[in-house]
Design a binder for these strands. Structure first.
Length: 423
RNA sequence: GUGAGAUUAGCUCAGUUGGUUAGAGCGCCAGAUUGUGGCUCUGGAGGUCGUGGGUUCGAUUCCCAUAUCUCACCCCA
């Protein structure tokens, strides 16, 4: 058997998993402060949900999904992104009858069959939030504000916010014609990918990474410049609200999100440190998504943040959340009787909230001390016949070797070890 | 899907111009006057040299394939 995890997947072991727990806690916390409730969804959906939600012309649907038939012949797909599933649940549970706006957040693992590289795996994690039921630009600004606040609370600084509007479907179909007309006489000189995109989705040509193509595009008409008055007003209100919150952003008329459901506002938080996959967070408005999944005309807006990329950025900026320092007590034992007593005392201490371990190997005292030091215990009590007879022992602080006499009693020990502060 | 580099112990890596029992450091286990860790010394366990073929008297070493890892293209979080 192959002992390695499948390509593009990764195990997360302690102590790294502790960092994940911290991040998850902080994300839960900020979402709740903004009034979002957590939604948990199945890891797979009917393939339809993504085909119709994310869109048939997107790369995700065309070539990156883990799709399979179940034993009854239903086509199912491991979720490649979060928003479509949230919208499906919104429709299924009739959340359109709740008081608007409906605010939901999630943390989930996602699956895409992609070429693995830095900042991109086949199973990865996102934190995200979706706000349904209001077309007001105040939602867009608050959603962006939540992400900005979250990154700031984590201590990140050099993350750039780029903002654009891709308009409503009418703006886009008008613009498609404008852009096609402009491209038609020039498309032959573009790269082969762009020539394909010309038919499928000419909008994507604007995002082409080939430098020569970018140069050719410098005077291409921009969707941004052709927004209809409502879309233009929406965008301007978003920027007004961001300005009022003191959130800095750059307008980038060339951002195009790869998921078809976006409309009007789109944004990305981009890092300089994650390699070429620098987008830590992407999001925007998706006013047609709920309807595409069979619900009513319910507007929505949200974001998704790549947790692995966020962690890379936190590491690069030396902002990894530190684990809370706690006292951890190791009970060393000299013989079988002491080992028995240690197990009992450990149980009582754990009930008092003290992290306590005792010898489970039957090792020498020297080896136990070595283990305790290496494993990050803050304190040790050695139990032997003297301690069992007297009912008291010496609490040794490993950082400096200081010892003090304590009764071998959970209350007495706890009073010397505040679980919230290690020293 | 395409291109480049890599794969030897739990980890980081040497090494063999093809030749008996493949090495180091760290880590692990044990010991260094009978009950106290982080330093030091000694000993020990641990490897189908990624996998499968080929060439050869003989392959961890050369050739081919394949898997995996890393980076990049594409695309996205």
């Amino acid at each position: 058997m192959d002992q390695a995890a499948p390509r593009g997947t990764r195990d997360i072991l302690p102590p790294e998993s502790g960092i994940w727990q911290q991040l998850e806690e902080r994300f839960d916390d900020i979402c709740q402060r903004y009034g979002y409730g957590e939604i948990r969804l199945p890891s797979f959906e009917h393939t339809e949900v993504f085909a119709r939600g994310v869109g048939d012309s997107s790369d995700i649907v065309r070539k990156e999904m883990y799709t399979f038939d179940d034993r009854a012949g239903r086509s199912l797909t491991l979720r490649p992104e979060g928003t479509a599933g949230v919208a499906r649940a919104f429709v299924q549970h009739g959340l359109s009858s709740e008081a608007y706006p409906v605010k939901l957040y999630y943390r989930m693992n996602l699956f895409r069959y992609e070429a693995v590289q830095k900042g991109r795996q086949r199973e990865f994690n996102q934190f995200g939030a979706e706000c349904f039921g209001s077309a007001d630009p105040a939602v867009d600004a608050e959603v962006i504000g939540l992400v900005d606040r979250f990154l700031a609370e984590l201590g990140l600084t050099a993350v750039r916010l780029e903002l654009n509007s891709i308009g409503c479907p009418d703006c886009r179909s008008n613009y498609h014609e404008t852009l096609r007309d402009w491209l038609r006489p020039r498309i032959a000189s573009f790269c082969p990918d762009c020539q394909q995109r010309f038919e499928m989705n000419p909008l994507r040509i604007l995002d082409c990474k080939v430098p020569e193509d970018q140069a050719r595009l410098h005077d291409a008409p921009l969707l941004f410049d052709g927004l209809d008055p409502d879309c233009r007003a929406h965008f301007e209100r978003v920027t007004e609200l961001l300005d009022a919150q003191g959130i800095r952003y750059q307008i980038n008329p060339r951002i195009v999100r790869g998921l078809d459901y976006y409309s009007r506002t789109v944004f990305e938080f981009i890092s300089e440190n994650v390699g070429t996959q620098g987008t830590i967070c992407g999001g925007g408005r998706y006013d047609g998504l709920v309807a595409a999944l069979g619900g009513g005309e319910v507007p929505g807006c949200g974001f998704a943040m790549g947790v692995e990329r966020l962690l890379m950025e936190l590491e690069a900026q030396s902002c990894l959340p530190s684990l809370p320092a706690r006292s951890r007590l190791y009970l060393a034992s000299l013989d079988r009787a002491a080992q028995t007593a240690a197990a009992g005392l450990a149980d009582r201490l754990r009930q008092e909230g003290i992290t306590t371990c005792s010898d489970l190997v039957g090792r020498s005292l020297r080896a136990q001390m070595k283990y305790a030091a290496r494993s990050g215990f803050s304190h040790v009590i050695v139990l032997g016949s003297d301690e069992l007879a007297s009912g008291s022992g010496r609490l040794r602080r490993l950082s400096d070797g200081a010892e003090e006499e304590v009764r071998l009693d959970a209350d007495a020990i706890r009073s010397r070890l505040d679980p919230r502060t290690a020293d």
